[in-house]
Design a protein around this nucleic acid. Sequence first.
DNA 1: TCTTCATATGTGCAGTGTAAACTTTTTCTT
DNA 2: AAGAAAAAGTTTACACTGCACATATGAAGA
Lengths: 197, 197
Amino acid sequence: MKTEAKDTKPYHHGNLRESLLAAARRLLETEGHSNLSLRKCAQAAGVSATAPQNHFANKEALLTALAAQGYAELETYMKRGVKETADRGARRQAALLGYVAFAQELPALYELMFARDRVSSSDPDLLRHVGACFVILADLSKDFGRYHGDAAKVEAKQQMFVWSLVHGYAQLLTADRFKKDTMQGMNIFDIIPDLGT
Amino acid sequence: MKTEAKDTKPYHHGNLRESLLAAARRLLETEGHSNLSLRKCAQAAGVSATAPQNHFANKEALLTALAAQGYAELETYMKRGVKETADRGARRQAALLGYVAFAQELPALYELMFARDRVSSSDPDLLRHVGACFVILADLSKDFGRYHGDAAKVEAKQQMFVWSLVHGYAQLLTADRFKKDTMQGMNIFDIIPDLGT
DNA sequence: TCTTCATATGTGCAGTGTAAACTTTTTCTT
DNA sequence: AAGAAAAAGTTTACACTGCACATATGAAGA
């Protein structure tokens, strides 16, 4: 028989894993990821302090899931507003601006995605999402800049160059290391030198 | 009169601030900076658990001091092996390789230097050392690449470009995001496209 | 109905950062 | 030289954290 009134809280949450991740996302941007705790996430999800253990082996596992989610979201930012039929130059433009926008809008999440210390970088799910982002970056790196040497190496260099540049720019921007007046009001394309097509 | 035998541990450490920083540096690279604690630093310095409070207002202050030290050391890495009389191209080569070497040899410290969350980025001492690094970067960014527009903006763009590229490269390298075989065995200059002098 | 099992709860513990009060040594003042 | 003040240690206390472990609950299948 029912032991209580109609809308008593059910013992089983039903969707706790996702609720915890959502709570973590919220706490991440408001309190920074060094002040994020499993207990706060649990409380925000309206559940006991140790409940998260049923869904995440430890704190690192939760942060890793969060980072994986971040890469998935970064992917949508890069794809956002890009018509599939557009030429590669337009895709590149949109994707790189999307990348930077992601870092600026979700700085704490972005930082977490590269925090060697707090996420297990060998997690399959994480690697899958990282790979998906890299596929996009690899596509839009083609035909970028003039290089010499064999094709495979050229492609690798293009990819490394584009990713390094956009990642460095995004992080220095969010870390507020570009301070001088003349540095304000630029976007990532402004700082790229003339590459001679 | 002396109360004890000759080599009894003195009540006052004498150099605790530096000892704590040294211990922190050690713990940083061995355990990662999320496992670093004030109490461990205190213990490593042979002092009571709360003694660090006399020298650092809080944990953030210690990490900030550590980051500042990191920028000072980055400066020496960039200057290392560079003759003052060498031309700018040689200086640039040496400095950028030094920058990347620093990130590879002291990855945890390097990560800390850009961790918005854990260091107070408005600390004057930190800003001073950041500024010193930037001076070097600004110097070796001159004459780099072809740009259009007025001189001040061109200079800003060159600086942002060089710093973004080297920082992004260094961090992606230490975060092990360059994995494919073709990406191994390169240095930062290999990935820069032909800039047409 | 009974059993089983995933999912929740509660308790306990070692470790952490920080505040506060106290003690010991050094330094400054007179 | 003596005493006061300051500096730099100590201990105690407390709230918070991650995690291990035992227990309770409810849903689903036998």
